[in-house]
Design a protein around this nucleic acid. Sequence first.
DNA 1: TTGTATGCGTTATCAC
DNA 2: GTGATAACGCATACAA
Lengths: 336, 336
Amino acid sequence: MQKITIHDIAKSLKIDSSTVSRALNDSDRVTAKTKEKVIQKAEELGYRRNILAANLRKQQSMIIGVVVPKISGNFFSNVISGVEEVASENGYHVFIAQSLEELEREKKSLDNLVAYQVDGILASISMETKNGRHFSVLGRNKMPLVFFDRYLCGDENTAVSINDEESAYNATKHLIDSGCTKIAHLAGKQNIKIYTDRLNGYKRALQEANIDVLNQHIITSPLLENDGFQKIQPIADKIDAVFSSNDHAAIGAMKYLKSIGKSIPNDISIIGFSNEPISEYTEPTLSTIDQSSIEMGRKACQLLLDRIKNYETHLNEKIMLPSSLILRGSTKGLKN
Amino acid sequence: MQKITIHDIAKSLKIDSSTVSRALNDSDRVTAKTKEKVIQKAEELGYRRNILAANLRKQQSMIIGVVVPKISGNFFSNVISGVEEVASENGYHVFIAQSLEELEREKKSLDNLVAYQVDGILASISMETKNGRHFSVLGRNKMPLVFFDRYLCGDENTAVSINDEESAYNATKHLIDSGCTKIAHLAGKQNIKIYTDRLNGYKRALQEANIDVLNQHIITSPLLENDGFQKIQPIADKIDAVFSSNDHAAIGAMKYLKSIGKSIPNDISIIGFSNEPISEYTEPTLSTIDQSSIEMGRKACQLLLDRIKNYETHLNEKIMLPSSLILRGSTKGLKN
DNA sequence: TTGTATGCGTTATCAC
DNA sequence: GTGATAACGCATACAA
């Protein structure tokens, strides 16, 4: 069984394949009657257009490449949903590559996406990524690139994220306003911009309230649940609140604190980050920060589409999406 | 800035592009010296191979298409991880398309994957899918297809899933063995094979224990959390156990039952299905069935790769992967 | 071992 | 409005 091509349709209709091509592309330089005949014959023969060939000729793939640490996990899969939504509205397809938090895989993913002639790339860097050297290939080939969430600083980079500094500031301020003064911060790896921003927001809130920023209150880790569980132990008796840079570590900390008899939020308040679905199921439910992930995907994709049309647009533009503090059971009501 | 092709390398080296092509493909019909020169020049010019063009020529894309209801959610993203693992080990790439549980999108996804000349397709059908008519296009074009999890019956279909009937039987039997006799079943839409299988396993366990299968104990729904919450209400006082075809509905039921003062598992035991991450965070933690999702992805991809090599292999093969009953806090210890 | 010629399926640029 | 022809970038059968 051979693949049907426009030539088969042409032959069977005794017209030229270029006419068939035009008909299938709904060109206005072909009679309505011819169009109809072609379309019907195409249907009859079970013709499927070979997009690869078309793209080779048109020098564009209509594919957007997305490099993410991993697709599992609520946040990234939501972002991808947003990307896909905008992409498909505009006739684009999405090619997903996972770095699995490894620099080597990130490099290879980029190479592959380039080799597949994607028209542009969306990326959120891995935990191991320290600089953007491997992204410069894209720049050299004028391949548009837009970062989202975990972005690399750099003059020419386009990025969409939330205002991490402010979100962290708001969360910490809320803890302070509700009466907490000894607030620990579970921080992420500081090579990642969003985590330094969150740390900075935390510090600013403390400073504004004239609370000393204590080194022993700031604990950096990969933010796995177990990190939260372990790292909070030495200071468990000296704090009245925890602000964590993600929900997993927050939940780990909550588990440990509950295990030693602390009452959440009466003894210790906790705020996480990311609004993972599990945060609604912990006991008590976890206050956290929602990052409007779907909207982030939409926006990033929109910017990328703009840059595919015109490479120079949005250069050095950093978009901050609004985030929202979601108050649940792990924080006290405001003191008044 | 132009894209670099093998012709550019050839010109700059004053050799023919076919030699360049061979060199880059590590053909043994080219001198080691030439190879070296070519590879070095390629590096120097920043050459990136155009896989699309190569694939067009070779009549294969090295792409595997995956159609899933949605990539968010633990189960499917795990399956995809497994698929990607095996695919990339074999030089293949994965193109993901979401049906979002809509039949129309599923059709369109298939069409698109075919148009992109994927070498084979992995699919798990949407909730709306009632028959495989739109999959027959693939068969006509000898495009290999392997179903996973939610598969369509049919003589020639290849599928990988767990033994849903047996898993459900085991779960129900466990409830019976622990002393429960009035066991409700939150069932999924019965057009999906795995949900009828689970219902059948439930029934078989009851029958073997000489417990009557009561219609009012079997409640069919889309299995959202709220479905569990709502649908369990009329029978809440007449049951001592719930076996749900997924974790979300089980959690909904748990929420309602707790809200009316039932003690879990003392008054009512609950078992879910799928081992979603949240099942570890409910209070009490939820007993459930693990579907070895990553392994399912690996296996399905392996079968597909076999079928890409030889279309006739694994025809009409249904592989059942082992599943395991995970006992947590929502079920009682065995009665002895 | 290397070069020549051709084609994968499509679209764009010409003529007519 | 339609047909002929070339080209996209690469790989391969064949010739040298």
